[in-house]
């Protein structure tokens, strides 16, 4: 693989929520070889879309569905990878997904597995009700695993992109419901990016290297403000992973499809709520233990440093030993 493609792909896969186009624009300007990029980065975009649960408007339906490995329709022999089809089990439609334009085309109706469909549908109904109760902008899909009876995958994604206020966030969760083993295993992934624009375009610092007398540091994300020449910039990313597993209680396993599905989503919902609340505690702990442990707000004396004293002592010791000019202490 061309090392430039390898680097570009690696950058794209690290894109914060909602910023893949910005990352792509940066990569285009850095590599400045669109022909090379056009073909080369497609695998990375495909991987990003599947891993990040990209959402797409389903043709002919008024809802969105999730692009993921579970949604992928196995590719037939002789069909090009570019023509990858994905399934929306809710509308029983498959479609070709364009990984660059993020659009669906060529919808075809799909006949669901008659054995799996009743329970899948029950899980979907329960999931949609859970989404409207706890997510402001959530999309969810439930897939029956082809070829494995009593095996379902529940996926949830919620995105908020607020570029004007410099933040974006993504909540992803996925649960594998295995009724053969009566097990639910899952994971919750949260990624938040918050940054601040500067308000000066260029600052210059002087370099200690004789070869580069003056070093210019530019802040491309800043705009020039004649009134205020002070730089203000920050970025912070929150990234969480949370892996879960649960053995289903007997009462759930023996219940009817509808009741069992509701109970499973109730357990998931309760756990997601617990996790969300536990983040508060993690934050508190990080603030109290780690943050304070790294740097105190004030010294033990609860006072700012008396620099004249610190220096008077240091300099006094230094100078008495050499010249004795200030050495009256």
């Amino acid at each position: 693989m061309d090392p430039r493609i390898e680097a570009a792909s690696n950058f794209l896969l690290q894109s914060p929520p909602g910023e893949i186009n910005d990352v792509l624009n940066d990569v285009r300007s850095i590599i400045s070889d669109d022909d090379l990029l056009k073909d080369g980065i497609l695998p990375a975009l495909r991987e990003y879309n599947l891993a990040q649960f990209s959402v797409v408007d389903v043709p002919g339906a008024d809802h969105q569905s999730i692009i993921s490995e579970a949604a992928r329709v196995p590719t037939l022999e002789g069909v090009e990878e570019d023509e990858q089809r994905f399934l929306d089990p809710r509308s029983k439609t498959s479609f070709v997904f364009n990984h660059i334009g993020l659009e669906a085309s060529d919808p075809q109706s799909v006949e669901p597995d008659p054995d799996a469909e009743p329970f899948r549908h029950a899980l979907e109904t329960a999931l949609l009700s859970y989404l409207s109760s706890h997510f402001l902008d959530g999309v969810g899909s439930v897939f029956a695993t082809p070829g494995t009876p009593n095996h379902f995958v529940i996926q949830i994604v919620a995105n908020k992109y607020n570029a004007p206020n410099y933040w974006s966030g993504r909540w992803r969760s996925e649960y594998v419901v295995d009724l053969n083993e009566n097990q639910v295993t899952g994971r919750i992934l949260v990624h938040v990016h918050y940054y601040e624009q500067g308000n000066v375009s260029i600052i210059s610092l002087f370099s200690p290297h004789p070869s580069e007398k003056k070093l210019t540091v530019s802040f491309p994300f800043a705009f020039l403000s004649p009134r205020n020449q002070t730089i203000r910039a920050h970025q912070v990313q929150l990234a969480t992973t949370h892996n879960l597993s649960l053995t289903l209680p007997p009462a759930v396993v023996t219940a009817s499809a509808g009741a069992a599905a509701s109970k499973i989503l109730a357990l998931i919902g309760e756990e997601e709520g617990t996790y969300q609340k536990s983040l508060n505690e993690t934050y508190y702990e990080m603030g109290e233990k780690t943050f304070k442990g790294l740097r105190r707000a004030l010294p033990m004396t609860r006072q700012k440093i008396d620099w004249d004293k610190v220096l008077g002592y240091k300099l006094g010791a230094e100078l008495t030993s050499s010249k004795g000019v200030f050495g009256s202490a």
Binding site: R232, H234, Q235, Q237, A239, T240, L246, T247, P249
Partner: peptide, 29 residues
């Protein structure tokens, strides 16, 4: 929370995860 689920008869969720906050801030005066 585990006790709560236990009380309801389930064996309880097994959990394992990581929370990471990282970034930088620049100011000038």
């Amino acid at each position: 929370s585990e006790n709560k689920v236990d009380a309801k008869g389930a064996e309880g969720w097994k959990r394992e995860g990581e929370v990471s906050l990282s970034g930088s801030m620049t100011r000038q005066t």
